[in-house]
């Protein structure tokens, strides 16, 4: 339980969270994932980091591979992955709300 709580408090820009967020809009292969993450998070994941995270996520059943097309294998988020991402987003939102309240920020003005 403690490990799970610790994991849900991971930074919002760790590769696993970024990949799940990217796949939430549809299946993508490695290069498309990398481009999408760069566009919404401003972070360029190297191939090693990207595939390290993909390995972990697939092992945990949070994403699943689709059929290969020209050596490029797309991945899609699973139901477990969607639930995990939802919990993670809610947790991030809760922390963001507390931070914004303490700073007196109106987050709607920043979006």
């Amino acid at each position: 339980m403690a490990q799970r709580e610790h994991d849900t408090r991971k930074r919002s820009n760790d590769p696993a969270s970024l990949i799940l967020t990217s796949l939430a809009s549809g299946a993508k292969h490695g290069h498309a994932l990398s481009k999408d993450i760069e566009s919404f998070a401003g972070i360029r994941l190297g191939p090693g980091s990207l595939y390290g995270a993909i390995t972990r996520l697939e092992e945990r059943g949070l994403i699943e591979p689709l059929d290969v097309s020209d050596r490029r294998r797309p991945y899609q988020i699973t139901a477990a992955g969607t639930a995990t991402l939802a919990r993670h987003v809610v947790e991030m939102r809760r922390v963001a709300d507390v931070g914004a309240a303490r700073l007196g920020l109106d987050l709607r003005a920043w979006s």
């Binding site: 292969h29 490695g30 290069h31 990398s34 191939p47 990207l50 595939y51 993909i54 390995t55 290969v68 020209d70 050596r71 490029r72 294998r73």
Partner: peptide
């Protein structure tokens, strides 16, 4: 790991 992900990683690096 190479057997499972090797081709995909090479393809990603080529695109990258």
């Amino acid at each position: 790991w190479r057997d499972r992900y090797g081709d995909e990683l090479v393809a990603l690096m080529s695109d990258d």
